[in-house]
Each structure stands twice: as structure tokens, then as C-alpha cells.
């Protein structure tokens, strides 16, 4: 587990985003057990309060479930999981769009370029 934090976004939200990415890309499976708050704090080198806050946020968003004293698990709720993927894609697209729109490129041309660059990048992997 390795996250590089920036100092301008709330650390707990960066932790939540990290979990979303891990889930969306399948590195964390539905129903999989996740580390305790204490372990997470140690692994990510964050303050235990921040880990606690991140878990609370994820619970509120329905990303994880905690029953009684057993360890927290990733949700098995399909709706939440699929919306996650959408959310991440939309987030990235929004970021992209907001930076590209200053250049004022026609959409068709833009899409064409995106396709080419994306294909090239993927072929490298």
C-alpha cells in the first residue's frame, strides 16, 4: 500500500479516493476484508484519527460494511460498486475537460486525438 499525499486536499478524502481506485480497478474485491484502522494508519503513515475519519466516510458512502466486532469488508452491493466505476470515470473526464476547454478544440477532432493517444498509451503497457 503506497499513497503519495498532497497537502492541499483533506488527507481522509485522499484515502477514500485511494480505496475507490482500488475497488474500481478490481485490486480490492467485493466482500474482501480490509485492514483495521490501526493497520491502515501504520501502512499509510497517517494519524489514526484520519484513518478513522476515512473509514467513517466510506461507511457513510456505503463502500465498506462493518458488522459488530468483525473486521470491515468491501461492500457487495452491486449498485454501489458499478456507480463507483462511473464516478471515477466521470471525475477524470471532468478534470480533463476543464483543462482542455481553454484550448477550444472541436469535439470530433478531440475525440479522434484521445482515441489515438489512449491506444498508444495502452499498447505500451
Amino acid at each position: 500500500m503506497k499513497v503519495t499525499f498532497n497537502n492541499r486536499d483533506p488527507v481522509y478524502l485522499q484515502v477514500v479516493r485511494y480505496f475507490k481506485q482500488e475497488i474500481a480497478t478490481g485490486r480490492l474485491q467485493a466482500g474482501q476484508e480490509i485492514p483495521s484502522r490501526r493497520e491502515l494508519a501504520g501502512a499509510l503513515h497517517i494519524n489514526p484519527n484520519t484513518a478513522q475519519k476515512a473509514y467513517k466516510e466510506m461507511e457513510e458512502q456505503g463502500l465498506i460494511r462493518t458488522e459488530g466486532n468483525s473486521p470491515s469488508r468491501i461492500t457487495t452491493d452491486e449498485r454501489v460498486l458499478s456507480s463507483l466505476r462511473e464516478e471515477l470515470i466521470l471525475d477524470a473526464v471532468h478534470t480533463f475537460v476543464s483543462s482542455i476547454k481553454t484550448i477550444d478544440v472541436p469535439v470530433d477532432e478531440l475525440l479522434h486525438i484521445v482515441k489515438e493517444v489512449y491506444a498508444k498509451e495502452r499498447s505500451k503497457e
Partner: peptide
């Protein structure tokens, strides 16, 4: 020492 701050020692 920084690791102390991410541990149960100060929880």
C-alpha cells in the same frame, strides 16, 4: 519517531 504518531501509542 514519526511512526509513533501513526500508531496505537498515541491513539
Amino acid at each position: 519517531i514519526a511512526n509513533v504518531f501513526t500508531s496505537h501509542l498515541i491513539e
